[in-house]
Amino acid sequence: MFSLLNELWRFLRTRKKYWLWPIVVVMLAIGGLVVLTHGSAIAPFIYTLF
């Protein structure tokens, strides 16, 4: 996970989108909770946007 955060940070720095960093962290936290409370990772969508 730390290497992922590190890569994400480097990515945002390259893209000069520092403002996304707190959002990424919060979203990862919320997303992490969603994962913990739900479970299966099933593609939800008719078009694979994600």
């Binding site: 997303g31 992490g32 994962v35 739900h38 990772a41 994600f50």
Partner: peptide, 13 residues
């Protein structure tokens, strides 16, 4: 809510 698990478990990695 539905897409995040997929990203957090697979696609980000």
């Amino acid at each position: 809510r539905m897409s995040m698990p997929l990203w957090l478990k697979e696609k980000l990695f």
